[in-house]
Computed example of a mutant assay.
Amino acid sequence: MIKNLTTVLALAVASVTSPVQAQPVKGDAKAGEGKIAMCIGCHGIQGYQASFPEVYKVPKISGQGAPYIVAALQAYQKGERRHPTMRGIAESLSEQDMADIAAYYAGHGNAQAAGAQPREPGTQVAALLQKGACVSCHGQGFAKPIDPSYPKVAGQYADYLYSALKSYKTEGNASVGRSNGVMGGIARQFTNSELKALANYIGSLEGELQTLPQPHFRLGQKAQ
């Protein structure tokens, strides 16, 4: 009797303490449409330029993969990506908010460019791409990442790409930089001029990324 009772108790404890596989939060694009007020002031204006840490166009996020958008917001929230404005925004978001916002933006890509064939890079850029093994993660034409948590980068603004790549090389700065072991190791292989060449090529490619303009914003408005 005692042995049987002990067995029952052991099974009960195991059922309580055994790890439960966390289910990913499912995003709702319709709900996300009501949560983007903090996003459209920058990402909803074509050609809008940030002024920190340097002047560059804020990235196009319409058409970006939802898992990547969530991963990026989580990185800002945790401080793995250091940017005061983006961290402040990310810290105000719940997991559900992030999933909803990501679902909204993921559904508004440039479908006409989805099947575009990338142009061939020049000899110098081809060597840099091979050295960094860039397509091994970002996929064919830099528009089909091998993992959904990796970004599509084809057609992204070149000046943003250049600033982002440099940020992986930044160390010891509380306000600027990105902590990512893989990207940090890759970026540090290159000089800044080589990173700019890579960014210019990738930015010149056709891709699904775009900016959906908000009608109540004046196009071409500059950051103050």
Rank of each mutant, 00 (worst) to 15 (best):
D159A: 03
D159S: 03
K131R: 11
G177M: 02
P151H: 04
V176P: 08
L129P: 01
Q189Y: 12
R188C: 13
G139E: 07
E194W: 03
N180L: 11
R188M: 13
G155S: 01
T170E: 13
S136R: 08
V135E: 06
S175I: 15
E194T: 05
G184I: 07
G155I: 01
Q189M: 13
S167I: 12
S175P: 14
I186C: 06
F142E: 00
N173E: 12
N180T: 09
S149T: 05
I186T: 07
E194G: 02
G177S: 09
P151F: 02
P148N: 08
R188I: 11
G184P: 04
A187N: 00
I146W: 15
G185P: 00
S193E: 14
L129C: 05
Q140R: 13
C134P: 05
T191S: 13
S175W: 15
D147N: 15
Y160R: 09
P148Q: 05
G139D: 09
K166Q: 12
G185T: 00
H138I: 02
G181E: 15
K169F: 10
P148L: 05
N180C: 12
K152T: 04
Y150E: 10
G184Q: 09
L129M: 10
I146M: 14
L161H: 03
D147R: 11
Y162C: 08
T191K: 11
L129D: 02
Q130L: 15
E194Q: 06
G177Q: 04
F142M: 07
Y160L: 09
M183N: 07
N180Y: 09
L128N: 05
G185H: 03
K144M: 10
E194I: 05
Q140G: 14
Y160T: 08
L128Y: 04
S167Y: 13
G181V: 15
S163W: 11
I146Q: 13
K131S: 06
G155L: 02
C137R: 01
D159W: 00
S167G: 15
G141S: 04
L195C: 08
L165G: 00
I146A: 14
M183K: 07
P145T: 00
T170R: 12
S163P: 12
S179K: 15
A174Q: 15
K152P: 00
L161V: 03
A127N: 12
G177I: 01
